[in-house]
């Protein structure tokens, strides 16, 4: 079965960990992931600038490792990202900011990417608060 996984809560929320464990279980059970999509506060999961204490799970890093390891399509909603200070190289230049907080494997793109993925998937599973 093909899944799209959407996450709406930040890295420090239980929802982020649950979404990651769910995504891992999807692949472990021979299903596939069409796209991972971060929206609303979920965009914080793609932040390169998050620092966790050494004895805590670095969930942002765990997401990055997971996406890279399985070469997944991982999209962060660009409008939600910009207003929360999440910028990749292009956006940082475009808006003359000094920082880059989003790097590969995450791609900033539009909400259409969520709808497109959903249409290609058997299931959309959302995590996080409304």
């Amino acid at each position: 079965m093909k899944f799209t996984i959407a996450l709406f809560s930040p890295a420090h929320s239980p929802a982020s960990r649950r979404a990651l464990r769910f995504a891992e279980a999807v692949l472990a059970n021979a299903h596939s992931i069409e796209r991972i999509f971060f929206y609303r506060e979920g965009v914080y999961n793609a932040s390169h600038a998050t620092v966790f204490p050494q004895d805590e799970l670095d969930i942002a890093e765990a997401w990055t490792t997971f996406v890279k390891q399985h070469d997944l399509d991982a999209v962060v909603c660009i409008s939600a990202a910009l207003r929360r200070g999440l910028l990749d190289c292009n956006e940082s230049q475009r808006y003359s900011r000094e920082t880059i907080t989003v790097k590969a494997p995450w791609q900033l793109s539009g909400l259409g990417q969520l709808h497109e993925a959903v249409q290609q998937s058997d299931r959309l599973v959302c995590f996080g608060d409304s």
Partner: peptide, 8 residues
């Protein structure tokens, strides 16, 4: 999110 879907 609704409008983006409507656009498609």
């Amino acid at each position: 999110a609704a409008l983006a879907g409507g656009a498609f």
